[in-house]
């Protein structure tokens, strides 16, 4: 089938499939198998139990909050990095990668120390009645940190490719700055922006390490889904752990599909614009 004269297709393909099968697909299949073993009725009972529902709600709403913050901040950051020249630009660009490179547990202890009542940030926030550490806001803070690079890194290349002539054309037609941004620039970066937001949201849904240090982990209030899976494991309630983890796996697949659909759409979008 391969038309090239290059060798090694079977070997490379065989190794890849074997590896993906053993390392990635086998465990996921085992997880789904375990969850299916519960039977539909019990599965539904487990994942719609009060504590599980509360954990899903906390996770989804915190992830939405973190994504909203990163949508605004990430767009601003990408804009500054692409459109402006300023001292420290390269450093700022490098700093964007810190949340990807820094282990989540390290981020967790650092954020907890910052937001604790006597911490650098907490000492100013708590007198104002804003409690972050060991409170729902802490989950948002942790998720915001770990998913910070996604919007920036998605929007940056698209913003870079935008040429000045479209903006100039709009300007000669008499459009104001806000109008040009809303009518010309934002539509062009919108698919990439949406993809970045989806990636940030997906990452936040699954975040564990950074969150558990700062959240306080009270059932019904600051307990995320990933932690509930962990707790069920420690209680040797493996079916419940499998069921909740399967819901998280399903959500991850849905987000993956969404991101892929957005990327396909953006490809067509840029082609039809060209």
């Amino acid at each position: 089938m391969p038309r090239t004269i290059l060798p090694g297709f079977r070997l490379a393909m065989g190794c890849t499939l074997l590896y993906v099968g053993v390392i990635v697909l086998l465990p996921l299949a085992a997880l789904v198998w375990q969850a299916a073993d519960l039977g539909w009725a019990r599965f539904v009972t487990v994942v719609t139990g009060d504590r599980a529902l509360a954990a899903f709600r906390v996770t989804v709403f915190s992830a939405l909050g973190a994504t909203a913050i990163n949508a605004v901040f990430g767009l601003a950051l990408a804009w500054a990095l692409v459109r402006y020249d300023f001292p420290g630009k390269r450093l700022l660009d490098a700093l964007v990668d810190v949340p990807f490179a820094l282990p989540t547990a390290v981020a967790g202890v650092a954020l907890t120390a910052l937001f604790a009542g006597n911490g650098w940030y907490g000492q100013f926030l708590e007198p104002l009645g804003i409690k972050v550490a060991y409170a729902p806001l802490g989950i948002v803070a942790a998720m915001t940190f770990t998913s910070l690079p996604f919007v920036v890194r998605s929007v940056q290349p698209v913003l870079e490719d935008l040429t000045a002539d479209v903006e100039e054309a709009a300007e000669t037609l008499g459009a104001g700055q806000a109008r040009i941004f809303a009518g010309v620039i934002f539509p062009a970066i919108f698919p990439a922006f949406l993809a970045g937001c989806s990636l940030a949201f997906a990452r936040s849904l699954g975040e564990f390490g950074a969150v558990i240090f700062i959240a306080g982990n009270q059932p019904f209030r600051t307990e995320i889904a990933a932690l509930l899976v962990f707790i069920r494991l420690e209680e040797y309630d493996y079916p419940a752990a499998a069921a909740i983890a399967s819901v998280m796996l399903g959500a991850a697949f849905l987000m993956l599909l969404a991101v892929n659909a957005i990327q396909l759409w953006s490809l067509r979008w840029t082609r039809s614009a060209a």
Partner: peptide, 12 residues
């Protein structure tokens, strides 16, 4: 795309 916790449980 998969939460590390989900991965860990899957291996279990």
């Amino acid at each position: 795309s998969i939460s590390p916790i989900v991965a860990g449980v899957a291996y279990l």
